Simulated scan of single mutants.
Amino acid sequence: MTPRERAEKSAAALWAGDRASAWVGMQITAIDEGSATLALRIREDHCNGHGIGHGGVTFLLADSAFAFACNSRNQATVAQHNSITYLAPVRLGDTLTATAREVALSGRSGITDVTITNQDGKVIAEFRGTSRAIGGSLFEESP
């Protein structure tokens, strides 16, 4: 199995149990070993009292892209710590893209950066997550 095939199979297994990402309306648009791209169109129910996209929705998108990138090797992996910096507001109707890329992996710990852009390519937020492999796999691989 190639690394990309493993990443695709890992993403399918993770997606099957990921109710939150599907509920909010995300789509996986690309997946590979150590990377993932997810997209989300901003709906009315994603907006806060100021009429702009809720920061929690942007964080959720980034966190999901982070999760798919971290789990792309078929090793069950969770977040240790995540942070986000918001750089521009999100508007109703925007299509956000979260592009996650692993920047470091050492033993069971990793660092993954996620850039969130809108449909015009404007950077909306930057997210950094640290991960920890917890043992186990997402699907059974034959030896």
Rank of each mutant, 00 (worst) to 15 (best):
T2A: 05
T2S: 15
P3K: 13
R4T: 14
E5K: 12
A7Y: 05
A7G: 05
A7C: 04
E8D: 00
E8Y: 00
K9P: 08
S10T: 06
S10V: 05
S10Q: 07
A11Y: 12
A12P: 00
A13D: 06
A13T: 06
L14M: 13
L14Y: 14
W15I: 05
W15E: 10
W15F: 05
A16Q: 15
D18M: 09
A20E: 06
S21C: 09
S21M: 06
I31P: 03
D32Q: 10
D32P: 08
E33V: 03
G34P: 03
S35A: 10
A36P: 07
T37D: 14
T37H: 07
L38E: 01
A39I: 11
L40P: 03
L40R: 08
R41Q: 12
R41W: 00
I42N: 09
R43N: 09
E44W: 03
D45N: 14
H46G: 03
C47T: 15
C47F: 04
N48I: 07
N48K: 11
G49C: 02
I52D: 12
I52R: 13
G53Y: 08
G53W: 08
H54I: 03
G55W: 02
G55N: 03
G55I: 01
G55A: 02
G56I: 08
V57A: 08
F59V: 01
L61R: 10
L61A: 10
A62T: 02
S64K: 02
A65E: 06
F66Q: 05
A67M: 05
F68L: 11
A69K: 07
R73F: 06
N74V: 06
N74D: 09
Q75A: 11
T77M: 07
V78L: 13
A79W: 05
A79M: 05
H81I: 01
N82E: 03
N82H: 02
S83A: 15
I84F: 08
I84Y: 08
T85G: 04
Y86A: 03
Y86K: 02
L87P: 02
A88C: 00
V90M: 08
V90S: 06
R91K: 09
L92W: 01
G93K: 04
G93V: 05
D94E: 07
D94Y: 06
T95E: 15
T97A: 13
A98L: 15
A100H: 11
A100V: 12
R101Y: 02
E102N: 10
E102T: 14
E102C: 14
L105D: 11
G107H: 01
R108V: 10
S109D: 06
S109W: 00
G110E: 09
G110N: 08
G110V: 10
G110H: 07
I111V: 14
V114H: 05
V114E: 06
I116W: 01
Q119E: 15
Q119S: 13
K122N: 12
V123E: 15
I124Q: 10
E126V: 14
E126A: 09
G129M: 12
G129S: 13
S131H: 06
S131V: 07
I134P: 02
I134Y: 04
I134A: 02
G135E: 04
G135C: 05
G136V: 03
S137M: 03
L138A: 07
E140T: 14
E140P: 00
S142N: 11
P143H: 08
P143N: 10
